[in-house]
Design a protein around this nucleic acid. Sequence first.
DNA 1: TATGGCGCGAATGCATACAGAAGGTCCATG
DNA 2: CATGGACCTTCTGTATGCATTCGCGCCATA
Lengths: 238, 238
Amino acid sequence: MAGLFKVATEAEEDGGLLSDRIRNALTDEIASGALVAGSALEEQQLADRFGASRTPVREALRQLVVSGLVEVRGRRGVVVARMTPERIMDMFETSAEVEAMCVRLATYRMTPLERSRLIELHEGSRAMVEANDVDAYDAFNRAFHECIYGATHNSFMAEQAQDVRARLSAFRRTQLRQGDRIRKSRDEHDAIMQAIAEGDGETASRRMRAHMLNAAAALRRYIEDRVRPVDGPEPDNF
Amino acid sequence: MAGLFKVATEAEEDGGLLSDRIRNALTDEIASGALVAGSALEEQQLADRFGASRTPVREALRQLVVSGLVEVRGRRGVVVARMTPERIMDMFETSAEVEAMCVRLATYRMTPLERSRLIELHEGSRAMVEANDVDAYDAFNRAFHECIYGATHNSFMAEQAQDVRARLSAFRRTQLRQGDRIRKSRDEHDAIMQAIAEGDGETASRRMRAHMLNAAAALRRYIEDRVRPVDGPEPDNF
DNA sequence: TATGGCGCGAATGCATACAGAAGGTCCATG
DNA sequence: CATGGACCTTCTGTATGCATTCGCGCCATA
């Protein structure tokens, strides 16, 4: 329902292709968790929902397959990518390494202006922590890391890092709700910022890796706490 | 023409989807350089060539857009991704960092069996160098690096690394034809292998990064030698 | 002669129609 | 009562048709 309204409002910016609009909408819904993993995505149903025919829906789905957000099952249609816990951990580890790689290069290459912008962002996150505003912190977090990607001055690397990050966004947000993870996250950012300020890319890199792996561990605890009691319908589902 | 024949022979394995076959064929042709950057890809023309209708061709093209191998220009159709020298260098740097990351993890995690397999591959490459067999060495090189990806025991990371590598394959092969680059490449592999044997992931990582950046530099020289004399129709085309 | 407007052609983007396959269901039989 | 097979439904995969839009060339005018 929210999707319908969104499409209706976005219909005004008609410049984009219909298939692109559908793809972006589905990407958002998968990344936000509105579409849970394993859900079947029927073409006709989506076409009705977006007020389009099956053709642009198909194109959007095919693109999502390449992005890894959905997977095809023979001729039985596509489902939202159903990931095992092992795969999620693999993705987090990869993300950690990629982020560590980016921050190392960024430390050595960022301009004073970029550094200033990063500091500004980081300072702004203090209020979100104290308000325990998960959504705001999630948005900040994204901006913070993208700022680092940009500071690598390597647009391809930035795109790759963002791709990996996007595939994990659905899990990252849940992870932030674990205990006082937000506060710890900001403390870790603080340590990273210090290494950046000192121009020590190697230390920044190690701290970033630890930061990301801590987030993964927090997610793991969160999942185990939530999945254990149920123990029934969805053991491998997400 | 070669493409037509290829499709005809592969038509027997009819299990795959038509759009997948087209996508794979186009991927191969772009990666191998048979389709040069900037070439326009007309839907009807491709449909005729593959003996299909426009629909599967469209789907294949859309998937290639997501892969970054082709790009759309409004409604003017798609062209093989036209990359600037800066972007290619960005991609090589990213590839270098990713490979360095993989080999570090692989050094710490590979099983004796995997190490044995890697040594065997490396030994086998000696003959190719002495025969100066670029195609054979290119194939070996791919197997060598994929073996390392696998040894990370992180399937997601392996996929990411392979994606980046695939996007550079068209350039990697040309680079191997530069001077005695093949011999140097094998020497660098040798140094990497030594670090792996000693279990020193950090050294293996640094050597791998240098190896990849050397390859990029070789490509740059090769391009400049070839593009400088022309200086006319394709300054940014390559 | 140069520039701007107009019309035509062609190719993309979307919609619709048709064929094939996969799964479910119901019935018959052991 | 269980099991296997055939039929039917539904959805995917592909083909074709139509509208829109973009580019290109021509012509008129300053």
